[in-house]
């Protein structure tokens, strides 16, 4: 149960302002989700390199960086933001890096991508955004989430977005009613889960369908038949942005589109900080209808 925001830029014009806009949007959704907040930003990606967003648990960044360089060789660099370290490594080292990160109890792998960085923490949304410096980030698109925990714990791991695949992330408002069975099925299929959260199951479901060759839009379409309960999803991939609501459209959603952007908010309030919002086409996404945008 939560607030969701998303912003997908159609061209370069607002890219340097992406973080500032999403930070303002996120803050307006504080009341819907006072427990924790998180966001994923699709920024600059370097060819041949991969970014690992790691959450550090009682360990300092320098020692982690040194250890990473020792294990993965040269060409490792990192940027520390509050509790999260974004490690940039050569793409061919990804498997080894994941193995290394998972082997350290003081590291939590939050997300992996060529372009995606993912930050989440417990606390008031405005504080979370400020602590990670969202304001200054740039990129093509971002999704964010403020959480009011329902049945799972108020922990950093339970915060959204959830990322279960490379450059893939999902935020969710609602509650799924068949996630336990689905989690067991996905586990048998080789997916791994970090939490007992229903939203992580939705993310993993989409990842597994995309791994099977479906596009993000097609994976969401398939989800309509398999995910039971209530949901509004906003998803991001390296070049894509998609929205889906359950057939009853239980949870609120409002979107705005201009020549520059497509934006999503749980409430209109979240869209107020956007430029030219007064002249945007503001509409509510239809239930059980996949909305997807691509940018290349």
């Amino acid at each position: 149960m939560c607030g969701i925001v998303g912003l997908f830029l159609k061209g370069k014009r607002l890219e340097s302002e992406l973080g500032a806009l999403v930070a303002a949007m996120l803050e307006t959704m504080s009341e819907r989700g006072p427990d924790s907040a998180g966001f994923a930003v699709f920024g600059e990606g370097e060819d041949g390199r991969v970014k690992l967003t790691l959450r550090l648990v009682d360990v300092d960044a320098d020692s982690v960086l040194a250890d990473a360089a020792g294990v993965l060789g040269c060409g490792v660099c990192g940027q520390m933001r509050e509790t999260h370290l974004v490690l940039s490594i050569p793409a061919e080292e990804e498997v080894k890096a994941r193995f290394w990160a998972e082997g350290r109890p003081d590291l939590v792998l939050v997300g992996v991508g060529n372009r995606m960085e993912l930050y989440k923490e417990v606390g008031a949304p405005a504080d979370v955004a400020r602590r990670f410096g969202l304001q200054a980030m740039s990129g093509t698109h971002a999704i964010g989430h403020t959480r009011m925990a329902t049945e799972s714990a108020v922990t950093t791991a339970g915060a959204h977005p959830f990322s279960t695949g490379k450059d893939q992330c999902l935020v969710h408002n609602g509650s799924l009613s068949n996630h336990n069975d689905l989690r067991r099925r996905l586990r048998r299929g080789g997916m791994r889960f970090e939490t007992e959260n229903d939203s992580e199951v939705a993310a993993a479901y989409l990842t597994s369908r995309m791994a099977g060759g479906l596009s993000l839009g097609q994976a969401l379409e398939a989800g309509l038949g398999e995910l039971d309960g209530f949901y509004t999803f906003v998803c991001g991939t390296a070049g894509g942005f998609a929205v889906l609501r359950d057939p009853i459209s239980c949870k609120p959603a409002v979107m705005a589109e201009t020549d520059d952007y497509v934006a999503f908010g749980s409430e209109y309030r979240a869209l107020v900080p956007l430029p030219d919002i007064e002249s945007a086409r503001v509409f509510e996404p239809e239930p059980a209808h996949v909305y997807a945008w691509e940018r290349h």
């Binding site: 939560c2 607030g3 009341e31 009011m148 408002n173 609602g174 509650s175 239980c250 949870k251």
Partner: peptide, 9 residues
């Protein structure tokens, strides 16, 4: 309304 986020409103 549905859910705690709407209930608050």
């Amino acid at each position: 309304w549905t859910g705690p986020d709407d209930l608050e409103i």
